[in-house]
Design a protein around this nucleic acid. Structure first.
Lengths: 110, 110
DNA sequence: CACATTGGTAAGTCTTGGCTTACGGTAAGC
DNA sequence: GCTTACCGTAAGCCAAGACTTACCAATGTG
């Protein structure tokens, strides 16, 4: 959890989102993920590293296997960030609607 | 709003997040944004293009100026996506805590 | 009708980053 | 202990992308 914004960068890549979404269906090992995806195992491994340092997944060792699992930490940070702007955005939208409507009235007048 | 996931890619870049956050403080024109940032105006313009096609900002023409403003559409999509995994992640976390706790009990026993 | 403001786009450069193959390292099975 | 299974990391390649300068279009202004 170095940078609070790593989660956005992590989920920006399609393959990485794919990995994340598959883990949402249940914990999986690296090899399992790689099998059902169109990239090699090292690629998956690298993606998992990124997801992990973004706080989106956790790792657990089971013998020689590394089982990865969804972590709510990263998701929570993203939600918090989004919520900071949600109300602001709604207000802006509201104001824009009013502004546009008034403009239309004016031009449609008569 | 081509791809539903463009918002993640858009907010992955730091400069672009900066632009977005500044717009959250209120609508601004391209030049204004560029002035208060360490990049040139064309750069800002390109970032705004990305943010716009991600549904994160809207554009409005005022004479020769283009005023940009936060748009709740993109934020809403992101929230929806996040919420799809939020409960799942919490459950996974819960299960992990229980698993770990049981393990500790076992090793600490006696 | 010049002329200035404002800003989007094109072209080129340089960095970032996603992918592969090759390798090393650790845990399980015989 | 030797082999096998599983996985992380290094090195290199190539595409994506963030930035710049140069240019052009559109709107206001005298």
């Amino acid at each position: 959890m170095a940078d609070r914004h790593l989660a956005f960068k992590a989920l920006a890549d399609g393959t990485r989102r794919e990995v994340f979404e598959r883990l949402a269906a249940g914990p999986k090992a690296v090899g399992e993920l790689a099998e059902e995806m169109p990239v090699t195992r090292p690629a998956v491994s690298q993606h998992l590293k990124a997801l992990k340092s973004a706080g989106l997944v956790t790792e657990r060792r089971e013998g020689t296997r590394r089982v990865y699992q969804i972590d709510p930490a990263g998701l929570g940070q993203m939600r918090a960030w989004l919520d900071r702007f949600w109300d602001t955005a709604l207000d802006a939208f509201q104001a824009e609607v009013i502004r546009t409507t008034k403009h239309e009235r004016r031009s449609k007048k008569r």
